[in-house]
């Protein structure tokens, strides 16, 4: 098992523990710091332990555990809230099915808030830990950049600032480039050494920032070497970062819509 897969597995297990822990905390906040005989903690724990795998599956389906995903975004928070809300619903149903009883609604609200905040905070902490480990030698995701442009420099700076697990180790360009380094990353040469670099540097990700005419061959090389290929929309002339990938009758299409009110999104 690779390092990042081990870390994600530990992350999932720790999430399960925190999810169960926040429900236990909600119990004590609601009931008091005692073990009630009217509403035994063991019953609550039995149900929440049963619900946790399903709740984790929701989080996994939403892609929240992806090591490249930034946890400090509203999208991630909204996904976590969605999952914890479903967790509360599953817990309520589970408790009723198991014990044919309802209980404190306030406990459910507290459990929802505690699990949402607790999980998000834990994800932010885990992100820091995981990124630190993945960026430590040997690099987990050595990344090759294609194209020596200003957009390349911006991308490298962003990856560095966010401590992204993708670590650029070199740049190739189809043309001769004067600079020896861009944003601290060495320019290794022209595309004729692509195959050698992909093999020798054990590249896992390739990000195309320029040289649109070579897209088809870069993709071909990535497929042959089991490398993940990424393309900056600016290569296609989409500069304003307002594109979206959507589905048009089964075709994936890149969409750039005219500027309009935020709510117009819901009506296309």
């Amino acid at each position: 098992m690779r390092r990042h897969q081990t870390l994600v597995a530990l992350w999932i297990l720790s999430d399960a523990a925190i999810f169960i822990g926040t429900y236990a905390l909600a119990y004590f906040i609601r009931v008091g710091w005692i073990l009630s005989t009217d509403f035994p903690l063991s019953k609550l724990l039995a149900v929440i332990v049963g619900v946790t795998p399903f709740w984790l599956m929701i989080l996994l389906a939403l892609g929240v555990f992806h090591p490249l995903r930034n946890q400090k975004t509203l999208v991630t928070l909204s996904h976590i809230i969605t999952a914890t809300l479903l967790g509360v619903a599953l817990f309520t149903l589970g408790y009723y099915f198991r014990f044919t009883a309802f209980f404190s609604r306030l406990l459910l609200i507290e459990a929802f808030f505690l699990s949402s905040i607790g999980i998000w905070a834990w994800h932010i902490i885990m992100q820091r830990i995981i990124r630190h480990i993945l960026r430590s030698p040997p690099l987990s995701f050595p990344t090759l950049i294609i194209g020596a442009t200003r957009e390349t420099a911006r991308l490298i700076h962003t990856l560095e600032r966010q401590r992204s697990p993708l670590t650029p180790i070199g740049i190739l360009d189809s043309r001769s480039v004067r600079e020896e380094r861009i944003a601290g990353v060495p320019v290794l040469g022209k595309l004729n050494i692509l195959d050698t670099i992909l093999t020798e540097k054990s590249i896992t990700h390739l990000i195309q920032c320029s040289n649109v005419e070579h897209t088809i061959n870069l993709l071909s090389a990535c497929r042959m070497h089991d490398v993940t290929y990424m393309l900056l929309p600016s290569v296609l002339g989409i500069m304003e970062r307002d594109e979206r990938i959507e589905s048009l009758e089964g075709f994936h299409v890149t969409v750039v819509r005219p500027r309009a009110s935020w709510w117009s999104f819901f009506f296309i």
């Binding site: 189809s174 022209k190 595309l191 004729n192 692509l194 070579h214 061959n217 071909s220």
Partner: peptide, 13 residues
Amino acid sequence: GFATRLWPLTEKR
């Protein structure tokens, strides 16, 4: 020469 302008045809030849 390394014929970089004719990449990828000159990748291996």
